[in-house]
């Protein structure tokens, strides 16, 4: 049986990768992908803590992850629709070039 700490470390690594992608990449779609990776890392933490917790029968961790997946799907749909709308306006998806609100 793999210990709990290993799952938490994998989750931390995925969170770091997602954060790095969201901070470094210029394409708005890749920024969204980074955010999805961070959400998935949180989900993995929930499942790991649920499985290793004192009361797995309560299913609290599973429920949280199911709702989290639903919210993440809604977030991805709206986020990608925004990217497409921005692309129609500005003909670019690079976040550095969207500086219209800059004073």
């Amino acid at each position: 049986m793999t210990p709990l700490g290993h799952y938490l470390l994998i989750s931390a690594a995925l969170f770091g990768i997602g954060l790095a992608g969201a901070l470094i990449r210029r394409n708005a779609i890749l920024v969204l992908i980074g955010i999805e990776l961070m959400l998935n890392a949180a989900n993995l933490n929930f499942i790991a803590f649920w499985r290793f917790g004192n009361n797995p029968q309560a299913l609290a961790g599973v429920m949280f992850v199911i709702f989290s997946i639903g919210v993440a799907a809604a977030e991805a749909a709206v986020g990608l629709a925004l990217v497409i709308a921005i692309y129609r306006h500005y003909k670019t998806t690079h976040v550095d070039e969207l500086t219209r609100l800059k004073g």
């Binding site: 969204l32 992908i33 639903g70 993440a72 799907a73 990608l80 990217v83 497409i84 692309y87 998806t93």
Partner: peptide, 21 residues
């Protein structure tokens, strides 16, 4: 949800914003 919907959605978004890259 993720492989079936989100990944496909991302591929569609890439398709629709392709020329900018």
């Amino acid at each position: 949800v993720y492989i079936g919907a989100v990944a496909i959605l991302i591929v569609f978004a890439i398709l629709l914003t392709r020329s900018s890259d």
